[in-house]
């Protein structure tokens, strides 16, 4: 079976994000970009499924600007077999990405789509769920363990109260949580091989998807600066401030 893995190009997690002066978004000029860490986990899981003999092919997909090819190359260097790049220059929303992925799923026929649970830039946490709904497939979100059992997947999910284990019929959409695996580093021979792996290109229009945005960003602002603390002389003063100034007791 085939495994499809969407990979998103985001600001590197080590970079301190700065808001643009006009508050229309965050500064992207001369900022280091890399693959969304949850998508790295997704790619790693797909490769492990292939290495375990459950999958024959891993396809990495990215939607966005021309430089997304670098992100796809990273996925190919990790071990994905081929890439698909849906070129789009402007902003793109999770619903549009889900519709594009649905078209690619119809075209490629994968049995599993492994999506990062969220991207670290917009933290939307929507694409995987929307894709499952559009496809009418079962979904296992926030998975921290995946086992293939015949024509179903036994998935352990991270939920508020602890861990939930569910069984989902294939085909299915999985969204990956942080503890699912530890992604491998791309080796030098694999980086060299990745250059020879094919990347197909499409536009959203070619796939029959309207990429226009339905959400308008009104303002982006930095969180308020944390104010300095106050030293109190005794417990009585502390209780007084908690009661009358902070009003928490």
């Amino acid at each position: 079976m085939k495994v499809l893995v969407p990979v998103k190009r985001v600001i590197d997690y080590n970079v301190k994000v700065r808001v643009k002066a006009d508050q229309t978004g965050v500064e992207l000029a001369n900022v280091k970009m890399s693959m969304n860490p949850f998508d790295e986990i997704s790619i790693e899981e797909a490769i492990r499924l292939k290495e375990a003999g459950h999958a024959e092919e891993v396809i990495a997909v990215s939607v966005g600007v021309q430089q997304c090819q670098e992100t796809i190359r990273t996925a190919l260097a990790m071990g994905a077999d081929r890439g698909i790049h849906v070129v789009h220059d402007g902003d793109i929303e999770p619903l549009v990405v889900a519709k594009i992925l649905k078209e690619l799923v119809d075209k490629e026929g994968p049995s599993i789509v492994i999506v990062g649970k969220q991207a670290i830039d917009d933290d939307s946490n929507q694409t995987g769920q929307m894709l499952a709904a559009l496809l009418g497939w079962g979904q296992a979100t926030f998975v921290s363990k995946v086992e293939i059992e015949g024509d179903s997947i036994k998935a352990t999910r991270e939920v508020d109260g602890g861990l939930e284990t569910i069984s989902v019929m294939l085909p299915a959409v999985l969204t990956t949580d942080l503890r699912l695996n530890e992604p491998r580093y791309a080796s030098l021979p694999n980086i060299m091989k990745a250059k020879k792996k094919p990347i197909e290109q499409f536009t959203p229009v070619e796939l029959g998807v309207d990429p226009s945005c339905r959400i308008e960003i009104l303002k982006v602002a930095e969180p308020p600066t944390r104010e300095a603390g106050v030293k109190v002389s005794d417990v009585g003063e502390l209780v007084d401030k908690l009661r009358n100034t902070a009003k928490v007791i």
Partner: peptide, 15 residues
């Protein structure tokens, strides 16, 4: 591009 890719891979690991 290759040299930068090698560097990024090693830099990520070392970091």
């Amino acid at each position: 591009e290759d040299q930068i890719a090698y560097r990024d891979s090693v830099a990520t690991m070392l970091a």
